[in-house]
Write a protein that binds this DNA or RNA. Structure first.
Length: 298
DNA sequence: ACCGACAGCCGTCAGTTTGG
DNA sequence: CCAAACTGACGGCTGTCGGT
């Protein structure tokens, strides 16, 4: 069995991938499988083979090799998709729609057959302090939504015509800062500390942030959503947008790494199962051979 | 104790894929 | 088509381990 490292220049040294050629018992058919280098090493050493680390293995020029590699990599479906396919589950995003309280992140467990069983976690609910007490916030997979009805109970809110619900882009713990986004007017986002409440007055396009603990409802910040902005406001807006983007990307990167880990774990399970099956088939073949030899002698 | 190698995790950027 | 989501790549930081 030959092992060719398809990409030795990848992140997280331990997660470098290698392509290994597997011969299917019986049929003689071969298959290329992409595995982490560490796993390829393990398999090869078990087979008494050496792992060949070479990007020039194919004899192609490096640039061409890189382009080809890029093409291969770019065509690979996302870990989410792969895992969904392996586990026979509907698309995670679809599941989110079907199950309002469902969670999409890192919810899988190992299956018994090397596949991946994805078991949904209980959607967390977060107690959020408002001026009138605690509002329970239900966290959807990607956002946290504060029900408008709950906000209406805030005694500080006097004019809430057309009050919308807001989505928070990160998990909100009491006392932490939260990024708040109006789910109905995309792009209007702002930071607020965890002990503040954001409200919006219907058609005024004005946000008000109020302290949740103070009984004297003094707005801390009033942000305007209209288009009359000074250069400084525009710069602040750009900065806010950048912060939002970075924060979302940070979360996405974490999510992606979790998915990658699950994917690798899933492949490791698969390797384990296939090795076991292969061993069983070899044993069976051996027994049949022995039986055949015995019969031949008689 | 110090040093270097290594592994793991994280944030960020840039490019790609996906879903509406 | 476009915005959002996803992911490879890169660099930085930290902890562990073995050698000196």
């Amino acid at each position: 069995m030959e092992t060719i490292v398809a990409d030795s220049n990848v992140d997280d040294r331990s997660t470098a991938t290698a392509q290994i050629q597997i011969q299917v018992s019986g049929s003689g058919e071969t298959q290329m499988v992409t595995l982490p280098v560490s796993m390829a090493h393990a398999i090869n050493s078990a087979q008494g083979q050496q792992t060949v680390i070479s990007s020039q293995q194919s004899g192609q020029p490096v640039a061409q090799d890189t382009a080809k590699r890029r093409e291969l990599l770019s065509r690979r479906p996302s870990y989410r998709k792969i895992l969904n396919e392996l586990s026979g589950q509907p698309d995670a995003n679809q599941r989110v729609k079907d199950e309002p309280g469902g969670s999409k992140s890192s919810e899988s467990s190992e299956s018994d057959s090397g596949g991946q069983m994805v078991t949904p976690l209980q959607a967390p609910t977060i107690a959020y302090q408002t001026g009138s007490g605690t509002v329970t916030v239900h966290q959807s997979p990607q956002t946290i939504q504060i029900p408008a009805s709950a906000l209406n109970h805030d005694q500080h809110v006097t004019s809430v015509a057309g009050l919308q619900t807001f989505s928070m882009a990160n998990a909100l713990a009491q006392g932490q800062a939260a990024l708040v986004q109006d789910s109905n007017t995309s792009g209007n986002t702002l930071w607020m500390p965890g002990n503040h409440v954001v409200v919006q007055g219907g058609d005024s396009q004005m946000y008000q942030i109020r302290t949740s603990t103070s009984s004297n409802a003094i707005p801390n910040v009033v942000l305007s959503g209209n288009s009359m902005q000074s250069p400084q406001q525009m710069a602040e807006e750009a900065s806010r947008k950048r912060e939002l983007r970075l924060m979302k990307n940070r979360e996405a990167a974490k999510d992606c790494r979790l998915k990658k880990k699950e994917y690798i774990k899933c492949l490791e399970n698969r390797v384990h199962v296939l090795e076991t099956q292969n061993k069983a088939l070899i044993d069976e073949l051996q027994q049949l051979k022995e039986m055949y030899c015995r019969d031949e002698l008689h």
